[in-house]
Amino acid sequence: MSVLVFISHGALANKHFSNVLNPAPDIQQVGATVVFEGIVRTDEAGRAIRALAYEAYEPMASNSLAELARDILSKHGLIAITVEHSRGEVAVGQRSFRLAIESAHRKEALAAMDEFIDRMKRDVPIWKTAIYI
């Protein structure tokens, strides 16, 4: 089982699904990889924006993401979780969040994905601000 957390400045680099795999020791048990990417939309509440600015309260943000990932990993019996989140400005169309979950079967990975994102939006100290055009 393995958890990796990255909070980095600016938009996340595009990735092919083949290289999001977490180098967990038991990676050969993986039968399902589910990847979610959050992309900045063109508007917030109906008003056009050029970017979102993310503010992370560190080190609590990284620690909270890692703690959440470990909890979800254990609860759903997953093999690996990799979380990437942006801080600073991310332009429209760019990626600001990526969550890759690896498990033996799809069901637990899909359930874990939803729960992780809900809890992150409630508990992890990251704030976003719309930068309007």
Binding site: G38, Y57, A61, S96, F97, M120, K121, R122, P125, K128
Partner: peptide
Amino acid sequence: VALIELVGGG
């Protein structure tokens, strides 16, 4: 001390 409300990552 930090006030952690109205968060919204992702």
